[in-house]
Simulated scan of single mutants.
Amino acid sequence: MSMFSWLSSQREPLQLPEGAVLIDVRSPMEFRNGHIIGAVNWPLDQLTEILDKQKPDASKHYVVYCANGPRAGMAKTVLIRAGFKEVMNAGGINGLIHLGVE
Rank of each mutant, 00 (worst) to 15 (best):
M29R: 12
Y62L: 07
G83C: 11
R81P: 00
Q10P: 00
S8W: 05
G95Q: 13
L47G: 07
I37V: 06
L51Y: 01
A20E: 09
Y62C: 09
D45S: 12
M1L: 13
K85P: 00
M88S: 12
C66K: 06
L22T: 04
E12M: 14
V78Y: 05
V101Y: 13
G91R: 04
G95T: 12
S2F: 07
L44D: 10
I50T: 14
A67L: 13
L16W: 06
I93Q: 07
L16S: 07
V87Y: 05
E12C: 05
G38K: 07
L16Y: 06
V78W: 02
A58D: 09
G69Y: 10
S2Q: 10
E102F: 08
S59L: 11
Q54E: 15
G34I: 01
G38L: 05
I93W: 04
E49Y: 12
N33Y: 08
L96R: 08
R71Y: 03
V87P: 06
S27R: 10
E86F: 13
G92C: 09
A58S: 15
M1W: 04
I93H: 02
F84N: 08
I37F: 06
F31D: 04
V40C: 03
R11Y: 08
A39E: 02
C66P: 11
R71M: 09
G100S: 09
M3D: 14
R32L: 07
D52F: 07
G92D: 03
P70N: 10
A20I: 12
L14C: 14
S2I: 06
P43E: 04
A39K: 05
L99G: 06
L7Q: 11
M74D: 06
Q54C: 09
L16Q: 10
A75N: 12
A82N: 14
A58W: 00
D45V: 10
A90W: 12
I97E: 01
L79A: 03
I80S: 04
H35I: 01
K55W: 02
Q46E: 14
K76N: 02
A72N: 08
L47I: 05
V21S: 02
V101T: 13
H61R: 09
R26Y: 03
I97N: 00
N41K: 03
R26G: 02
L96M: 14
I50D: 01
G95H: 11
K53T: 13
L7F: 13
M3T: 11
S9I: 12
S2A: 14
F4S: 07
R32C: 01
P56G: 10
L47W: 05
L16R: 07
T48Y: 05
